[in-house]
């Protein structure tokens, strides 16, 4: 290796430097992977009794749904934050959650809660995914067709559409029979207890299929995170990459939302923690760490929900409460920038 040309300044600089605690990212992946595996095992095995042939497949189904949602939400949030260059945004800003609520509301309003709940889950799932993907596609097409239109305008349009969807939903909910509304309300929270196994397999295929291009983009995403101008200067086709990433994000969110309900709430937490744990920024480590944190948050949260609170509260409350505390601790320790 090349010898250092100016040993003195280097020594001086290093002596005044704050000691940086660095745990190699690979070690974090091992630690978090073990924790995630332990939680999954605990979820499958704690209080396991009765007819195993009945209970175990059901638990496997639920844990499968959680892992799938963790992957979809973690990957889409990290990717979305990279292309928007903003660490506090999540894909929910594009209004897909609100669209999901509107679809449920319209279905219940038009067909009645009984019909909606008894209609084939595959039909409902397909309607939801198709509508959500079609909405994102129209939004991107409309905004990118003009050429000069910016990503910020796209986000703004997403917010406006979200407000519109929420407004329309709440109007319909007010006109609705109160007893129907109570049934409808149940659909607004993520739940892993009503996942259809067939849909789970289909969704798993789609999510896995999207994770391949996302992973292959990892180096380009690292460059993209330096900002548009620098990325273009380094030869990244900015528009093409951003469009591709946005499409991946919206399909991931659409599939995960249609499967279990709105669940993007923990994306922000998971990505913020993942960035904290990575001493050096690389998608090749941020992505797996975010996914593992997502699995830990969901499976751990569900475990607490079932074992401690006996299903008496919502999963989002458990995760956001714990996550908020973790985040505050990090903030007070000065590790959040």
């Amino acid at each position: 290796m090349r010898a250092k040309t100016d040993p003195l300044p280097t020594a001086v600089l290093q002596s005044t430097r704050k000691p940086v605690r660095t745990v190699p990212p690979r070690a974090w992946i091992v630690v978090l992977g073990t924790a995630a595996a332990a939680l999954v095992a605990a979820f499958l095995l704690v209080g396991l009794e009765g007819n195993l042939a009945y209970v175990l497949p059901r638990r496997l189904n639920r844990v499968g749904a959680m892992i799938l949602v963790a992957v979809a939400v973690a990957v889409s949030t990290v990717l979305f934050q990279t292309v928007t260059g903003n660490r506090i945004l999540t894909p929910s800003i594009m209004g897909l959650d609100a669209l999901y609520v509107l679809i449920q509301t319209v279905l219940v309003f038009a067909l009645g809660a009984r019909t909606v709940l008894t209609m084939p889950t595959t039909a409902r799932f397909s309607i939801e995914v198709v509508l959500m993907v079609a909405f994102s596609w129209l939004l991107y097409r409309w905004l990118f067709a003009g050429g000069g239109r910016s990503l910020h305008l796209l986000l703004l349009a997403g917010i406006v559409f979200g407000v519109f969807f929420r407004g329309a939903s709440s109007l319909l909910q007010r006109l609705m029979d109160p007893s129907e509304y109570i049934i409808l309300q149940d659909l607004f929270f993520a739940s892993f207890n009503r996942v259809d196994p067939t849909l789970l397999y289909v969704s798993a295929l789609v999510v896995a299929g999207l994770c391949v291009p996302a992973w292959r983009l990892r180096h380009r995403l690292d460059v993209l995170a330096l900002g548009r101008d620098t990325a273009v200067g380094l030869g990244v086709d900015h528009r093409r990459t951003v469009t591709l990433v946005l499409v991946i994000c919206s399909v991931l969110v659409a599939v995960s939302t249609a499967l279990v309900g709105p669940a993007t709430f923990f994306g922000l937490l998971v990505s913020a923690l993942a960035y904290q744990l990575c001493s050096r920024f690389r998608h090749a480590v941020v992505l797996p760490i975010a996914v593992l944190l997502g699995v830990i948050a969901l499976v751990g949260g569900q475990l607490v929900l079932e074992q401690v609170f006996a299903f008496d509260t919502a999963l989002s409350i458990v995760i956001e409460f714990t996550g908020g505390i973790v985040f505050l601790v990090l903030l007070l320790k000065g590790r959040v920038r």
Partner: peptide, 11 residues
């Protein structure tokens, strides 16, 4: 190319 503003959002 080198631009005027070189703010990084990543560490």
């Amino acid at each position: 190319i080198l631009r005027q503003e070189n703010q990084l959002t990543v560490r």
